[in-house]
């Protein structure tokens, strides 16, 4: 076991390959109906967005409340490329990522001079401006939405139903999470953390704060762009500006906060929990917002470091007990 752990430590991508193989068998082994595949796809899309948001918010410490706008840019880039040029998923995905990266630059520039609630307001304005621009623009089909966006196909195999599209969204999620891990464990990730802890200290230590701030916004925007494109092509292939409001933004933020800000697994855990909690409370629509809000408040009250921090603490205590043989930590 120790040898296996050491291999994973040295070659982390092996863990992702194992995760890919396990997740590939989940629909046939675990799922009992197509809806579960649909829900899994939503979870994967949310994981990609939340993993990106965790880079800029959790690791770099930049308060952004406009991420849903970047998600919309990804979706609408894919949607309009199909609408006007007839491009399919494999072409729209990379273009959506690149286009959203440029929007990430625009969203990140205010972070040079603003921070905290001021930056939050600026990014909130940016995100809402994007949605309103889409909503009022006939070029984007306005409030009629873009429909019939085709699902991807590969060598004649069409991923046209939720149980098939699962494999597309799962693959993109695995790749995105792998990149997120690689970035956060590299020197770039450490630079982000130092900026989060103290930008002045980071600058004094020779870190180009502006460069890394903008890089965090670009990287997280690329994640949002990828998620947006995957979302746009998800069956039945329909996007509408109503799906990119402040409520969705708060939900994304809740995922990161619940999972644990700055925790490497934070966004992932949060995306899974929030999406499932939302789904389980679907029949209780009268009380859904109450349950949802209560879950967040209680988590913040009793687990300020989120579920990720809670899990970390559990393992730390377990390791401590094992080493010392004591029952309780001091």
């Amino acid at each position: 076991m120790e040898k296996f752990k050491s291999i994973i430590r040295d070659y982390p991508f092996i863990a992702f390959i194992i995760a890919f193989v396990i997740l590939a068998f989940v629909p046939s082994v675990v799922f009992t109906d197509v809806y579960q595949s649909h829900l899994a796809t939503l979870i994967f899309v949310n994981i990609v967005v939340a993993a990106g948001l965790n880079i800029v918010k959790g690791y770099c410490g930049q308060v952004t409340v406009g991420h849903v706008g970047l998600f919309a840019v990804g979706s609408y880039t894919a949607g309009t490329l199909f609408l006007y040029l007839g491009l399919g998923f494999w072409a729209t995905l990379p273009i959506a990522i690149i286009v959203t990266a440029f929007f990430g630059v625009a969203m990140g520039i205010p972070s040079f001079r603003l921070e905290g609630p001021y930056l939050a307001l600026a990014t909130l304005g940016g995100g809402e401006a994007i949605r309103l621009f889409i909503e009022n623009g006939n070029f984007f089909r306005s409030t009629f939405g873009i429909s019939d966006i085709p699902t991807p196909s590969l060598m004649g195999y069409n991923f046209d139903s939720p149980d098939r599209y699962y494999f597309i969204s799962m693959t993109i999620m695995i790749i995105a999470v792998y990149f997120s891990f690689s970035i956060l464990r590299s020197g770039v990730g450490r630079a982000f953390m130092s900026i989060r802890e103290d930008p002045i200290c980071a600058a004094a230590a020779g870190i180009n704060v502006k460069k890394y701030k903008i890089l965090a916004f670009i990287l997280s925007a690329m994640f949002a762009g990828a998620a947006g494109a995957v979302y746009a092509h998800m069956p039945p292939g329909y996007i509408h500006p109503n799906n990119y409001t402040v409520i969705e933004m708060v939900t994304f933020l809740a995922m990161v906060v619940l999972g644990g800000l700055g925790h490497i697994w934070g966004g992932i855990i949060g995306a899974i929990v929030i999406t499932i909690v939302y789904d389980l409370t679907r029949p209780l629509y009268k009380y859904q917002l109450l349950i949802f809000g209560l879950t967040i408040v209680l988590t913040i009250l009793f687990m300020p470091k989120g579920l990720g921090g809670f899990i970390d603490r559990y393992f730390l205590e377990k390791r401590f007990k094992k080493k010392t043989g004591t029952e309780k930590t001091s």
């Binding site: 197509v34 809806y35 649909h38 939405g145 329909y238 996007i239 509408h240 109503n242 789904d279 679907r282």
Partner: peptide, 15 residues
Amino acid sequence: KSEKGVANATKLAYQ
């Protein structure tokens, strides 16, 4: 919201 409507229809139909 279209996303919720699609999820609801999928859940109602399959689950």
